[in-house]
Design a protein around this nucleic acid. Structure first.
Lengths: 231, 231
DNA sequence: TTCGGGGAAGTCATCGGATGGCTTGCGGTG
DNA sequence: CACCGCAAGCCATCCGATGACTTCCCCGAA
């Protein structure tokens, strides 16, 4: 195994074993390199890799630290990964949303605090009739983000956010806007909110399913056309 | 932004834009470094990072290639990330399994091929009464893996595999073995299989939920005791 | 002709050292 | 007590050199 990979494993082991707690500071590059038995250059490759997936946080002029390692932070990487997928697999991601979002919505209807529910409604209200495309995307993102967070499960929340990153969402919204489906979508958002506010998990679950399934079907048809056009 | 991060973004852009197709070979280190305007060392850090998350595949003496970028490959990283989480969040991961596995099991009951269903049954049959702990873990992993794959959604499959990595599973099994819950668990596996073989998605969904929820409750109690013991 | 060995070319792996930039904290000054 | 500047500590980046591994081609033997 390459020295660098070995270093990655060793650093990972130090963290998992508890030797390096979240937030802890690593020895300086030179020392750690010597301890792990490799050059600073190679160590830097390892640190950079762990830094990309948010396990380490390098601050120039200060030092290298272990991040909080919370699900939110680590699963943040998911968004980065999803960006690499093209249209061909977008449907599978949307299918995942159809599984995850209803579950999160139902959970949110049960455990979300009244204040958070109020804030959720405010998000919907904040969108005027003259909203731009970017506004729509941002608002949509914020709405679903709050619901996901309201589920009380950080892993679920991060998964949803990662799988339906801005990239994917932007593309879908662009299409929906062109088809004039915006009012329709906004009505569904409202219905989801009402179900949550009314503390009706089953209804919330159903509306969320309907919402995502609608998107899914629309995308399926669109991709189908595009596919045949390409063929 | 550091040069290395910039390089990561540029390489990512080259891939997303289609300039670098899956399987394509990158220019050699020296050339790419010059093209991106940085040193070989810095470029190597970028490549190493992208290599860790399975976007690039570096083969010594040969060259650097873009991977297939399939969901299976990219979401493989998830397992690596999950390893960093400790007991405190294991429950959240299990809660995710309780959402994902039933969905996958139901889907499998619909679309799995007859051959795959037969093979799935063979997995259960292959486990003798004198199986060791490692056998149990491996068999359990294989059983659930095949079901996840049988859902027909590669993203869902990878997500399940990533979230219930060997690490987490091993710990749970160790505990279950001590409590003599093995026969019970194996009966549930059998019931899940029967439901899939009988093409009854609702039943399969229910059994999978029961199965994971049982684990979840057991773990919740176990952690609760451990937690109070620590306090 | 076919098979296999050997060597050359190409590419990554790793290292050591040197320089520059950023952050932090100490100490001096008003 | 507040502010400013300097020095130390640490990461950022680069250069150049050597070693190791793959691949592929060429040549000789069967």
């Amino acid at each position: 195994m390459p020295v660098t990979d070995e270093a990655i494993e060793k650093i990972k082991a130090m963290i998992v074993s508890g030797e390096l707690q979240p937030g802890a500071r690593l020895p300086k590059e030179a020392d750690l390199a010597e301890r792990l038995g490799l050059s600073r250059n190679s160590l830097r490759e390892a640190v950079k890799a762990l830094s990309l997936i948010r396990v380490l946080d390098v601050r120039q002029g200060d030092g290298t630290y272990v991040t909080s390692l919370s699900p939110e932070v680590l699963l943040d990487t998911l968004g980065f990964l999803v960006d690499f997928h093209q249209d061909s697999t977008v449907l599978e991601f949307l299918e995942m949303r159809r599984i995850l979002e209803p579950a999160a919505t139902a959970m949110a209807a049960r455990v979300m605090s009244d204040e958070d529910v109020t804030a959720l409604g405010a998000v919907l209200d904040s969108l005027g009739e003259d909203a731009t495309l970017d506004d729509l995307i941002a608002n949509d993102l914020e709405f679903h983000r709050r619901i996901a967070a309201g589920s009380g499960n950080a892993v679920l929340c991060s998964l949803i956010e990662g799988l339906s990153g801005p990239t994917v969402r932007a593309r879908i919204w662009r299409g929906l806007t062109e088809e004039g489906a915006v009012p329709h979508t906004r009505q569904q958002h409202r219905a989801i909110f009402e179900a949550i506010a009314g503390r009706r998990p089953e209804v919330a679950h159903a509306w969320a399913t309907v919402h995502v399934a609608g998107l899914e079907q629309w995308l399926r048809e669109t991709l189908g056309e595009a596919g045949s056009a390409l063929a």
